[in-house]
């Protein structure tokens, strides 16, 4: 799997990330940093604990790093959840969360494929 195929598969913008990183070679390095960030786990915990503040911070971080990675789908959905949580709307966030979980896990497994 090429980096381009990886981006296509997860609903990302390949041209945008090349514009930002200037080289395809360092995409894996940045993917590593992305998936090592514990914000997704924090968001999961925050949702389970019904801790709005914790969940908001995590969603906000996820949104920022997804945007920087040009993971467009993930950016849109984490942005939506961030805005729910900013408004303190835990129920709204809970409705969106499963979709975010699907997208994140899809990205994660596609990345495993890219590495192998």
């Amino acid at each position: 799997m090429t980096a381009k195929e990886f981006y296509d598969k997860i609903g990302g913008n390949y041209n945008e990330i090349i514009g930002r990183l200037m080289s395809e070679d360092i995409i894996p390095k940045f993917c590593d940093i992305f998936f090592e960030n514990d914000c997704y786990q924090q968001l999961l915990d925050g949702m389970n604990e019904k801790n709005v503040d914790k969940a908001f911070r995590a969603a906000h971080t996820l949104k920022g790093i997804s945007a920087n990675m040009a993971f467009t789908q993930l950016t849109l959905i984490s942005s939506a959840i961030t805005e729910c949580l900013r408004a303190g709307d835990m129920d709204g966030a809970s409705i969106i969360f499963p979709k975010l979980k699907r997208e994140y896990e899809k990205a994660e497994s596609a990345y495993e494929e890219l590495k192998n």
Binding site: L21, F30, E36, C39, T61, G64, N68
Partner: peptide, 12 residues
């Protein structure tokens, strides 16, 4: 920035 990814991008 608390997210290392953002710091790495700016460092780049």
């Amino acid at each position: 920035d608390d997210a290392d990814l953002n710091r790495e991008m700016l460092k780049l």
